[in-house]
């Protein structure tokens, strides 16, 4: 090996390395999610996509593929080319779906690459203002007349729905669960008094509570939530062990190359550290929290376990 070549090789290698990294992304990245435009998933996707476009130097376009609690989008992603140009903004519903469906057209653990979580958030149990004293009162009434307390939720098989089922399971009360087409419709129903309780994200419950139309009786997280410390947890009031946290995260099809995962993971760490992003994620009622791919995978796997138990014990009809 000539001296020239010996010098040239590392230089070439050094040149080649950034060329490799710069190879990806070389065209538009599509960030899919399984919900309608304007929803939580869509908004988070847009916040992240905006910053990623700048960081990666290629447009990151958000695309909505709604249907069946997000499984349409998950199915689409599980079968997409693992080239890093089709990514998914995943939500807690991903683990719920894995527990709920008899036959998903994909494997919720093995068919995906988990890159990083984005935010974690609890749900809040809200009632019409003044309707109940507290969680204990509500559960007591439900126990007195089984099925008389109606819980409106954002759709069969949504995390909100199963959170309601879990409440029944752990508190021993029987509720009537009423499906609506999305959280906004459920809020409207609660405002109009058609249902008695809804368990949904802070964005749809806390604004109403501040205006005095809703009472917030409890938070679904295992411990009290940072920016709502006066709200008791459901676990400490009526249902010991109740712990529901939903999340958003970035994922892709299984088999993404390590380079791509590394690039995206680093980019997510950068994006999540931006104060403007943290501010927006917080405005959406979530705690901004980036993670490693491993942490994300563990979270998904644990939750699939929890929801599988809920679906089985509550007798929710699988599909």
């Amino acid at each position: 090996m000539s001296i020239k070549l010996r010098i040239a090789l590392p230089i070439l290698a050094a040149l080649a390395a950034p060329v490799f990294a710069a190879d990806y992304p070389e065209k538009t990245i599509r960030l899919y999610h399984g919900f309608g435009p304007g929803g939580n998933a869509d908004t988070v996707a847009r916040i992240v996509a905006e910053e990623m476009s700048q960081g990666l130097g290629q447009p990151v376009v958000v695309e909505s593929k709604p249907g069946a609690g997000g499984t349409v989008a998950s199915d689409f992603i599980s079968k997409a080319d693992p080239d890093g140009y089709s990514l998914q903004l995943m939500v807690g519903g991903h683990s719920v779906a894995a527990a709920l469906y008899n036959e998903l057209p994909y494997d919720a653990k093995e068919d995906f690459t988990f890159i990083s979580t984005i935010g974690k958030f609890p749900f809040f149990a809200a009632t019409q203002a003044g309707a109940f004293d507290d969680m204990a009162d509500l559960v007591a009434q439900a126990k007195e007349k089984p099925g008389s307390i109606k819980i409106g939720h954002a759709g069969v098989g949504s995390t909100q729905h199963l959170s309601g089922e879990l409440l029944g399971l752990l508190s021993g009360a029987e509720f009537l669960h009423i499906p609506y087409k999305g959280g906004a419709a459920a809020s409207t129903a609660l405002l109009g008094g058609e249902v008695d309780l809804m368990i949904d994200a802070g964005t749809s419950t806390r604004g109403q509570a501040e205006a005095g139309t809703f009472d917030i009786l409890g938070v679904t997280s295992g411990e009290r939530w940072d920016d709502a410390t006066d709200v008791p947890t459901i676990s400490e009031t009526v249902a010991e062990g109740y712990d529901v946290l939903s999340w958003t995260g970035l994922g892709g099809p299984a088999g993404l190359s390590d380079d791509v995962v590394a690039t995206l993971s680093a980019e997510m760490a950068r994006v999540m550290a931006l104060p403007s992003v943290q501010e927006k994620i917080t405005a959406l009622g979530a705690k901004p929290s980036a993670s490693t791919p491993e942490e994300f995978r563990t979270l998904v796997e644990t939750q699939i376990g929890v929801w599988t138990t809920v679906v089985k014990d509550a007798g929710v009809e699988k599909r």
Partner: peptide
């Protein structure tokens, strides 16, 4: 009321939330 009636309105609410305005009766 702060409740969107359709997908277009949901988009508007999304834009409000992003700007730190929580839509609601207030």
């Amino acid at each position: 009321l702060g409740v969107p009636g359709d997908a277009v309105m949901a988009l508007m609410i999304g834009a409000l939330i992003l700007n730190g305005v929580i839509p609601g009766p207030n």
